[in-house]
Computed example of a mutant assay.
Amino acid sequence: MTLENTNKTKALIDDLKAVCANNGLGNSSSEFDIITQAFLYKYLNDKFTYQLKRVRPDLTEAENWQEELLEMDEDEYRLLELELETNAAFLYPRHLITNVFNSQNDNDFAKTLDDTLLDISQINNQIFSVTTGGGSKIQLFDRITEFVKDASLRDNFARAIINKLVDVNFEAIMEEGFDFFSTIFEYLIKDYNNDSGGKYAEYYTPQAVSKVMAAILVPKPTDNVTIYDPSAGSGTLLMHLAHAIGPRKCTVYSQDISQKSSNLLRLNLILNDLVHSIGNVIQGNTMTAPYHREHGKLRK
């Protein structure tokens, strides 16, 4: 199943890149934002439905369970949030990809898609936002269709994106482990974050080196550990350390001057069951304005 899930997930990433290329955005800086945000929307959608089916099988076993969700009143639906784990975004029926897909023939569909992403960001802002050194919040999503400069093409671009997302189901990958998600993360960002000095490259610790460092730093199981990286990049080393310790047994603290790297680290934390640490991700310059301190000194 792992190989099948890997191939299916990589195929979606390739399909999203093809959509960008067909709309003149291939190999552009905005392609990175579109690919990572569309992928994250799909992952959060399926994570939510996966958890919902676990806690409320009576609700989701119906043939048209999405319609039943739509018929629930606000108070009843909000009670569902208390039953779900906190490592998933909370979505309303209007946010589900199937429901957005069903509205793709409406006017201004690009606006519908963008509004949906921003609404998800706002509702989940407290848990999923990255903080800047100045205290501002960087939300999960942007208006991704506005990267297409010709406004007349945005609706078709949005339809192409949503049609790719609705074609696959990621619920099966929720049981996959660190090795799977580290492989997918590396594939997702391979064209945008590498050590070959490309146009959009960021420095990062290669997977093989991170694995060795984690084995040295965590020689035996341990509990209640904090991990701090003052120049975290996309978080490859942090993820290996957290995997060696156990994601439920550690808390990650980080800072990095790059907003792109901080967004990648957030994605990495979401994929690797470390949502509880997103609030500790700081985008800023550790050299001139270190954020994480202990007893008046830089955290170690």
Rank of each mutant, 00 (worst) to 15 (best):
Y77L: 15
W65F: 15
K42P: 04
I173E: 02
L80E: 10
G24W: 08
C250L: 09
V55Y: 12
A172K: 06
T116S: 09
S196Q: 14
D15S: 14
F178R: 02
L52C: 07
K42V: 08
V281G: 05
T226Q: 13
V148A: 04
P221T: 10
T288N: 12
E76W: 04
I227W: 03
T9C: 11
K17F: 03
V281F: 05
A232D: 03
Y50F: 14
V130Y: 04
F157L: 09
S182I: 13
A21V: 06
D46Y: 10
D15C: 07
Q259M: 12
G233P: 09
T205M: 14
K137F: 04
L40M: 11
H240Q: 04
N5S: 13
V55A: 09
L80M: 13
I144C: 03
I184F: 04
N5Y: 10
E63G: 02
T288Q: 13
K111T: 11
V212C: 05
N87M: 00
T60E: 02
F170Q: 00
Y41E: 00
E74N: 09
G246V: 08
G24D: 05
K8H: 05
A172M: 04
Q126S: 11
F185S: 08
I257H: 06
I144R: 06
V168S: 00
D167H: 05
E186I: 01
Y253A: 00
I257A: 11
E85W: 11
R56T: 01
T226E: 14
I184W: 01
N163S: 15
S182C: 01
D229F: 04
E294W: 02
L52A: 03
L79Q: 14
I216P: 00
G177C: 00
V281T: 07
Q66F: 13
D33F: 13
N163C: 08
L264M: 15
L84P: 01
V252Q: 02
G197W: 02
R266V: 06
D179P: 03
H240I: 01
K297M: 09
D142K: 15
L82I: 08
T98Y: 07
T222G: 06
H95N: 14
H276M: 02
S261A: 15
S262A: 15
D179L: 12
L113R: 04
G284F: 07
S30H: 13
N64S: 12
N105D: 15
L298D: 05
V281I: 10
E176V: 04
Y203T: 05
L52M: 14
H276W: 02
L165Q: 08
R154M: 06
L44W: 01
G233Q: 08
G135W: 09
Q139F: 03
H95C: 03
F157D: 01
N193S: 07
A289R: 11
G284L: 12
R154I: 09
L44Y: 00
G246M: 11
L12P: 03
N156S: 12
K137W: 01
A38I: 08
E74L: 12
N105F: 13
A232H: 10
A11W: 05
I35G: 01
I161P: 09
D15V: 05
A244Y: 07
L165R: 10
A38Q: 12
